[in-house]
Nucleic acid binder design. Sequence first.
DNA 1: GACTACCTAACAAACGTTCAGTAGGTTCAT
DNA 2: ATGAACCTACTGAACGTTTGTTAGGTAGTC
Lengths: 194, 194
Amino acid sequence: MSSKEKILTAAIILFAQKGYSGLSMRQLALAVDLSVAAIYHHFPDKNALYLETVRYAFADKEQVFDQVWQSKGSAEEKLSRFIHSLLDVMINDPNFHRLMQREMLEANPERMQLLGQGVFNTQFCLLMELVKELAPDQDAHLLASSVLGLSKYFIEYQPLLKNFPGWKPEHEMPAFIATHITTLLLNSFKAKTA
Amino acid sequence: MSSKEKILTAAIILFAQKGYSGLSMRQLALAVDLSVAAIYHHFPDKNALYLETVRYAFADKEQVFDQVWQSKGSAEEKLSRFIHSLLDVMINDPNFHRLMQREMLEANPERMQLLGQGVFNTQFCLLMELVKELAPDQDAHLLASSVLGLSKYFIEYQPLLKNFPGWKPEHEMPAFIATHITTLLLNSFKAKTA
DNA sequence: GACTACCTAACAAACGTTCAGTAGGTTCAT
DNA sequence: ATGAACCTACTGAACGTTTGTTAGGTAGTC
């Protein structure tokens, strides 16, 4: 792994943990065992480093769901598999997920456009087609968003949900959450089309 | 309004916008037209100020839903009213909402406990009782979480959702979102209990 | 005379960024 | 084959600025 890649890999973790202004160039340099000037050799300034870090973190992430779309089975099974995969990604790559949360807080219009029309576009379209199959007479955009929303919320708010009454240990298991979300949505689809 | 309240009110807005490390004491002092030392007269240090700001922002917020619980009508109508109120609060008080998002990112265990067992406890319990009425044989904690999750996601991810194909202007109207969430959930309840 | 609410001015530390220099490899005319 | 020129990847030290925090003083109230 090159020094540049080492810097970016560490930057993903540290920006995710501390945020943009919470991470200093010196802290990052210390983490990758390089001088501050070495970082400036690879990146013009902190802002450019952050942008490239986000881009680097979001690469690869698209093809995680390829196996879901290529798999055989009913639409119901595909939805279940998608939700399971989504939760797995978020659990297994918490730094990517936290970086995404921070991006949503900033909600820079240009970068939102990049995500919505670029990186995540294909996945969202495939998801919309799937829910259209399951509930043809409903608003596909709203339903696809609901799939993502339920999945993301259960992960992001787990630390809070734990402290609410009625919480059980299985509530933080990805497979359990995924099953709940899947049945919730499939039940709703059935009721509407009936 | 006292100087201390003025400081806290401005701090809610600025911490929400810039985050803890993004806001300096000097910027805050400038915003409230006081010297930095004046802030230190009211708060021992920056961290204590932040904690009190969060506490201040979360005060009041409990009683917003009182009218929902005290209102008459079926459980279905109450759920609808709760979701509408929830979305209204989040839209009308974006600074509070952003501060909450930042708190979830940090997810300090002590403060999560404070929120889950203190501030939001009553509301979550009332919501659980409501969904128990609507779907007695399902996991009330999961369903109550789903209500909150769907509502929060549609607000938090609006800037991204806008850039996905299939988006329509009505998708950012609170009333429209609330109706979608309500029918989605009520349909799911019906299917399961049938 | 004590107390509250504030001020100006300063502190050391940390910040982003830059500059001059070096060690090691490649290129290339001689 | 060799030495000059050049490039890349880095270092240490410094720059001016901003940071959180504090010390000491003042004006008004009780």
